[in-house]
Each structure stands twice: as structure tokens, then as C-alpha cells.
């Protein structure tokens, strides 16, 4: 089998010159190994909500339920407060956090409103008009890139 598609260079997608690694993308937390290690228990706690019996226990006493998992205090408070940006910074991955969102009956568009700070109806209009621009944050100062 010919597996040699290398040699030729990658097509130019117009990547800005200052975006050199996945850590350079503003407003975006790639779920790297480091993040995965940081967020392991937080993500597994959210994932456990895929079982109805666990959702029921979480419903009874959210805080007590989270104490089944060795979360850091910051992770626990972020989860109880539904602070998605904080959870992302603490190692959360959006698909795991999405199980918490599903438990709350929140759509991803509602979660997006929370994470971006854009009101839901405005966000809906923005999406209908073609969505947000990928370069929206590119001119931010360095240091503001994450979360």
C-alpha cells in the first residue's frame, strides 16, 4: 500500500503567521495530555452522569455526589457553579462537561452563550448570520490567550 503522501507541502489554509502551535490559539483550550491529566477526575465525574442512577444521586445532593470523586476544591466549586470556562481551565473537556450540560437540559448553544458571555438570542442571530470569525481574538495581547 502506498502510504507516502509526504514530500509535497501542506495546502495553504491562510493560517496567521503568529499561530505556530496549538497553544497559540486564542480563547481555545486544546485537550492536551497535560489538560487530560489535570482534569481526569472532573471529567470522569461529569461522565458518570451518563447513568440514570448517578443522575438521581446528583439530583439528591450535588455536592455530596461530587465528593465521590477526588476533585480539587476549585474543580468542585466550578462544577457546582456551572462555570464552564473555569472547568475548561481546570482540565475539563467540553464533551465530558457536556454530560453535565445535558443533565441540566442545556443545549450546546446555551453552553456557548455561557462560555462566550454573549446572550443566547444574540448568539443565535450571530450564528444565523454565519457565526463568529476565527480571527476574532487574534489581536489580543499575549497572556489573554487561554480559557
Amino acid at each position: 500500500m502506498d502510504t507516502s503522501n509526504s514530500g509535497a507541502s501542506a495546502p495553504d489554509t491562510g493560517l496567521p503567521a503568529h499561530i505556530k502551535s496549538i497553544d497559540d490559539i486564542p480563547g481555545t483550550t486544546v485537550f492536551t495530555p497535560e489538560q487530560s491529566r489535570r482534569g481526569y477526575h472532573l471529567n470522569m465525574c461529569c461522565a458518570s452522569l451518563m447513568r440514570e442512577e448517578n443522575r438521581e444521586a446528583f439530583r439528591q445532593d450535588e455536592r455530596a455526589y461530587t465528593e465521590r470523586f477526588p476533585l480539587t476544591p476549585a474543580q468542585r466549586e466550578a462544577m457546582l457553579a456551572r462555570d464552564y470556562n473555569a472547568m475548561l481551565a481546570l482540565g475539563g473537556n467540553i464533551y465530558y462537561l457536556g454530560k453535565l450540560g445535558a443533565y441540566d437540559g442545556q443545549s450546546f448553544q446555551q453552553l456557548t452563550a455561557r462560555m462566550t458571555g454573549i446572550p443566547e438570542d444574540e448568539l443565535r442571530k450571530i450564528m444565523l448570520a454565519g457565526g463568529r470569525s476565527v480571527s476574532a481574538f487574534d489581536n489580543e495581547e499575549r497572556g489573554k490567550n487561554h480559557g
Binding site: G14, G27, N85, L88, I94, M115, T116, R132, V134
Partner: peptide, 13 residues
């Protein structure tokens, strides 16, 4: 789906 940049769309790409 995640973070402050959630909601981006890139029709050109």
C-alpha cells in the same frame, strides 16, 4: 464548542 472562541464558523476553510 468550548471556551471564549466558541461559535466560530469558517465557510472559507
Amino acid at each position: 464548542l468550548q471556551g471564549r472562541r466558541a461559535g466560530v464558523i469558517n465557510s472559507e476553510f
